[in-house]
């Protein structure tokens, strides 16, 4: 007996393939088997699409309506009574040539006035610039302190002039304050 035959015999004794060992190889698939495609009626899909579009359109319309509707300001609205009736309108004369002439000379008057004001502002600015220039020549330190912003003047508040001077010691009567403005939801 050759050694090769001996080895074979030993191997067959150890591993038996004829006996069922429940050891089987199966096909590898790497995916789920495909489901059977359901058939949908094209009319149904069409209706579904339509419904979705309508819903979105409705939402858009609602949004647009919301932006158009503003909170009414009653003080700025003309009362219906005035719009409807004409009996409140006064008779009005046409502008005579005298009135037109007056307006023309008024325009000329205001023009001259504004020109005068502009020259006045120029003159005042010139005076200040002259003073600052002279100060710079005199002492740079003083100049630097002069060009600082005066914070106490900001914000600038001023009042008057009025038509008549204030009445000294006038006790202004307190009016009653009733808030009648309507409440509006946001």
């Amino acid at each position: 007996m050759s050694p090769g035959v001996f080895l074979y015999k030993r191997l067959t004794r150890l591993i038996s393939t004829s006996v069922p060992l429940n050891f089987r190889t199966s096909q590898s698939l790497f995916a789920e088997p495909l489901k059977k495609k359901k058939r949908i009626d094209p009319a149904v899909t069409k209706a579904r699409e339509e419904r979705r579009r309508k819903r979105i359109e409705k939402q858009i319309r609602r949004l647009e309506k919301g932006t158009r509707q503003l909170k009414p300001i009653e003080e700025c609205e003309i009362p219906l009574e005035i719009v409807k009736n004409n009996d409140r309108i006064r008779s009005r004369q046409e502008d005579s040539s005298r009135v037109i002439g007056l307006f023309k000379s008024w325009a000329a008057y205001k023009y001259k006035q504004s020109l005068r004001d502009a020259t006045m502002v120029d003159r005042i600015l010139y005076s200040q610039q002259l003073a600052l220039d002279r100060l710079k020549m005199e002492s740079p330190e003083l100049y630097l302190s002069a060009v600082q912003v005066d914070e106490s003047l900001l914000p600038f508040v001023t009042s008057g002039p009025t038509e008549t001077p204030p009445v000294v010691g006038y006790d202004s009567p307190d009016g009653e304050y009733i808030d009648i403005s309507k409440k509006w939801d946001d």
């Binding site: 005042i124 005076s127 200040q128 002259l130 003073a131 600052l132 002279r134 100060l135 302190s145 002069a146 060009v147 600082q148 912003v149 005066d150 003047l153």
Partner: peptide, 12 residues
């Protein structure tokens, strides 16, 4: 109330 730190006029 003084109106600013800068002089507005000059005279010598």
């Amino acid at each position: 109330k003084f109106l600013g730190n800068a002089p507005c006029g000059f005279y010598k």
